[in-house]
Design a protein around this nucleic acid. Structure first.
Lengths: 222, 222
DNA sequence: ATATATTTTTAGACAAGACTAAAAATAATT
DNA sequence: AATTATTTTTAGTCTTGTCTAAAAATATAT
């Protein structure tokens, strides 16, 4: 039953997983095509194949949903991706804006032993360098307490726990602001007219942050 | 010029490199086919392609030789392979008999930065878990003082520095004999009739070792 | 409800990389 | 040197995954 999948097939499953996570099920063809930067026709083809393999439920002109086995595989890929990202940052000193593409390749190396050893070596991290939860061997996630910074009231003692945008440029910008995972923030003031915030970073630097940024930053109290 | 190669192309270059190393140049089609467990016809095809890309010199019915660029790439692949093997053994506690296939996949991940960081993290090892030299960024090898155990005279104070056979079964057998890289040996006696050796391992255990084994074990004095 | 726009699927082509079977070249033998 | 054996190449086919263009289905708008 657990027949070895190609890199392409794995990427489709992951794309469906991601789209379902944000857009809900069923996932339509165009969304997958966009996610994978591929033609819609290619997606149709692949959905037929994945359906034949029992990994997804697929109805023409309607959409696709992951079945149990497909969901298991997608979750495993996400586990691998996030563990590799953690490794690259924690062990090989990469920046959080540099690791996505490498992890995208590393995640396709198919060895449970490898990934479990890596997990052990890293000390069973619960979150990756972007603050996203790392599924355990059974595919279970640790929930993260997260609020968008943009939606918090004026408040002191916040901690950055994640970002919803993994774009290298965005991450680099945060780096320049001295904002990273674990950084402590206080919201000092809110400006109605453009929804920007005045924020104190690490009780140190005071900056104005646009809504563009604050709406992609997850924080938790304390 | 340095156009991205496919995994298949990379494997062919490595196969040519390996065969040239042992059999000398030029490397003939069948040798490559055997090395890669592929049909000779597929090899012919690929040699034409690699030749067109300027990576190898190829004459029909004669054989193939790596050109500078091909040699550079093959050496880089070997560097990656051996560094990943080192990582798996040193950092993730894999046995030396378990790492080949994983490294075979990992070596195709194309990032000089990744591999240099890995090298740094491991402390710039000169030899991999099988005792094979790891090329540096410039492709330079550290030479290893090596003699086949089978060709040494009765002598004390030898150290195991490598194996010429990477077969998991062979490596496992050595493990059972408590022989690994760095193990100290004394040749106590030589038996003419079957070229077996009586060997003292770590001034501890005395065993008879067949020529089959001793002719695949590299040692150096002291 | 009919026409228009959008999305999705089908149809047909292509490239990479593999295979088998047959032909051609080279090597080995008598 | 002629015949046989081996190696290598060519020719043709297959699979995977992609594409474009056209057809079909669904959704939107008048």
């Amino acid at each position: 039953m657990p027949t070895k999948l190609s890199t392409a097939e794995e990427n489709y499953l992951k794309a469906i997983y991601k789209q379902a996570e944000k857009g809900g099920a069923p996932v339509n063809t165009n969304a997958i095509a966009r996610e994978l930067s591929t033609a819609a026709a290619s997606v149709s083809d692949m959905l037929r194949k994945l359906s034949a393999k029992g990994l997804i439920a697929y109805q023409k002109y309607y959409g696709a949903t992951l079945l149990d086995e497909g969901n298991r595989i997608a979750t495993k890929l996400i586990r691998r991706h996030r563990l590799w990202e953690s490794f690259l940052v924690a062990t090989l000193s990469f920046g959080w804006e540099e690791v996505h593409d490498l992890a995208e390749e590393l995640e396709h190396i198919d060895s449970d032993l490898l990934i479990d050893r890596l997990d052990q070596f890293l000390g069973y991290p619960k979150f990756d360098p972007h603050g996203d939860p790392i599924p355990d061997r059974q595919g279970r996630y640790t929930l993260r307490v997260q609020h968008l910074l943009s939606e918090m009231p004026i408040q002191q003692h916040l901690t950055v726990v994640g970002v919803s945008n993994h774009d290298p440029e965005f991450l680099h910008l945060l780096k320049d602001l001295n904002i990273q995972l674990g950084t402590r923030l206080d919201i000092v003031q809110k400006f109605e007219f453009d929804d920007s915030l005045k924020v104190l970073i690490e009780e140190h630097t005071s900056v104005i942050i646009s809504n563009r940024i604050s709406s992609q930053l997850y924080v938790r109290p304390a």
